[in-house]
């Protein structure tokens, strides 16, 4: 126990124990599902085989591509608008006072409740998906940006005024870098939301994409394909989050870690 406790405190010890944990989990899944008679929980090798087979075919790649395109477009739109509106709201008090109740209300609507609304506006297709993902990811980015812009370091603000930095220069070189950590926090919350909205809108409002494949497979009782879709989504979610945490680290390398969570 003592050796275990001490090894946990080193990075290498943690990695070894973590690897053991991951292998145990995979092994347990493998053993439990081996020769499974239960159609709902097929054997792990069958799922992995199907994942490898299906998602490399032209059809699989097209569905994967459709999901990724709409996800990235939707997230980009949501982030751009979220940052822009957030900067305005965070810096102009009267705008904030005027529209914050309306915003509070719009934000409280669960994003998926707008799926029927988006389908009515845009019909079944990519636009519905992009609209929903953008709308869902807008709020966390907007609120974090506005909050960050509201609490800009007074020293920073005063220095900018002393050097007569104003207008666009002030926004681009002072406000945005200062708010960047908060913007990135907002995006971190927006990414999983975007994934949820992507899958959901594909389940009801699209003819292609990961969510579409999973529901189709369920409807036609191809449960191994359905499981392979779930595995692909898991891997996708994990890799996007992981890649984003790397990006975040690069972008924030210059910032003062002591102020990051302030």
């Amino acid at each position: 126990m003592t050796t275990l406790t001490t090894s946990v405190s080193t990075a290498r010890g943690r990695a070894v124990i973590g690897a053991a944990g991951a292998l145990t989990a995979l092994g347990a899944w493998f053993m439990l599902s081996r020769g499974s008679e239960n159609v709902y929980f097929p054997a792990l090798p069958a799922i992995l085989d199907e994942t490898w087979e299906y998602w490399r075919t032209a059809e699989g790649l097209r569905n994967l591509g459709a999901s990724l395109t709409t996800l990235s477009l939707g997230l980009c739109l949501g982030i751009v608008f979220g940052v822009a509106i957030g900067l305005v709201i965070g810096q102009l008090t009267f705008v904030e006072q005027a529209i914050s109740p309306a915003l509070e209300f719009a934000r409280a609507i669960p994003a998926t409740a707008l799926i029927p609304f988006a389908m009515m506006l845009f019909g079944v297709g990519d636009n519905t998906k992009i609209f929903l993902i953008a709308l869902g990811s807008l709020w966390p980015v907007l609120l974090n940006t506005a909050d960050g812009a509201r609490r800009i370091d007074p020293t920073l603000r005063d220095s900018a005024r002393a050097f007569r930095i104003a207008g666009f220069q002030r926004q681009a070189f002072i406000v945005v870098p200062a708010v960047l950590p908060r913007i990135l926090v907002g995006i971190r919350i927006a990414i999983p939301l975007g994934l949820i909205l992507m899958v959901t809108s594909e389940m009801v409002g699209a003819q292609e994409g990961l969510g579409f494949v999973i529901t189709q497979a369920q409807a036609t009782f191809q449960l191994v394909t359905m499981w392979s879709g779930i595995v692909v989504l898991g891997v996708l979610g994990f890799s996007i989050t992981f890649a984003y945490s790397l990006l975040e680290r690069v972008l924030l390398r210059w910032s003062d870690p002591r102020r990051e969570d302030a």
């Binding site: 973590g18 709902y40 999983p192 369920q218 979610g237 989050t241």
Partner: peptide
């Protein structure tokens, strides 16, 4: 319990970003 957390961490990190709506078809069936 730190050793337990280190042991389970990769599993948690993998399960956490899985969009739970992906499980809807499975949940409907089971």
């Amino acid at each position: 319990v730190r050793p337990l957390e280190a042991f389970l961490r990769p599993v948690i990190e993998f399960m956490r970003p899985v969009p739970s709506v992906a499980l809807i078809p499975l949940v409907v069936l089971t």
